[in-house]
């Protein structure tokens, strides 16, 4: 019997829809402020900073960060941590363009780590679409949810 067998399983969050209802529009003002906050000037060709892949999907997905945590039966106050983030672009993001989000939780896996103790590893996928449905990117994010309640 492994140590994990002694723990309750991770909550059944896989499959939870993250489809959004909001429309996210990249404004010139916010794009410029975002670029400058990271040390560069906005592009002159109308493209937005590609980090909007993360910003737009997080803001316009169907749950808040706290809501995603809640779906995993995790209190956001306990400090979710980013583990990794990946993105595949089908088209550049553009200033003045509006987008919507679809997505879902792919998995929630309970693990034990030497550094963090018991943790749940959350993987979720979000897709950003033009309003006509054309997909412009897909992103997979992994968060680590430390389960302090199982600390030895």
């Amino acid at each position: 019997m492994s140590e994990l067998d002694e723990l309750p399983p991770a909550p059944p969050a896989a499959g939870t829809s993250l489809d959004g209802t909001k429309v996210f529009t990249i404004t010139a003002e916010e794009n410029a402020a975002m670029c400058r906050s990271t040390g560069i000037e906005p592009a002159a060709d109308g493209t937005a900073h590609p980090i909007y892949y993360y910003v737009a999907t997080q803001v316009a997905m169907g749950k808040t960060v706290a809501g995603v945590c809640e779906a995993c039966e995790f209190d956001v106050e306990d400090g979710p941590m980013m583990g990794s983030s990946g993105v595949r672009f089908a088209a550049p993001l553009k200033v003045g363009e509006s987008y919507k989000v679809t997505g879902e939780i792919l998995s929630l896996v309970r693990k034990r780590s030497r550094k963090l103790g018991v943790m749940d590893v959350l993987t979720y996928r979000l897709r950003l679409h033009l309003l006509d449905g054309t997909q412009v990117l897909e992103t997979d994010n992994v968060w680590v949810l430390p389960r302090k309640e199982f600390a030895a």
Binding site: I40, P50, G86, R88
Partner: peptide, 17 residues
């Protein structure tokens, strides 16, 4: 990446924290 490849486009990216 954008400053290293002026006019280029990031097609895919994976980051670990």
């Amino acid at each position: 990446l954008m400053q290293a490849f002026p006019g280029g486009t990031i097609k895919a990216m994976d980051s670990r924290f």
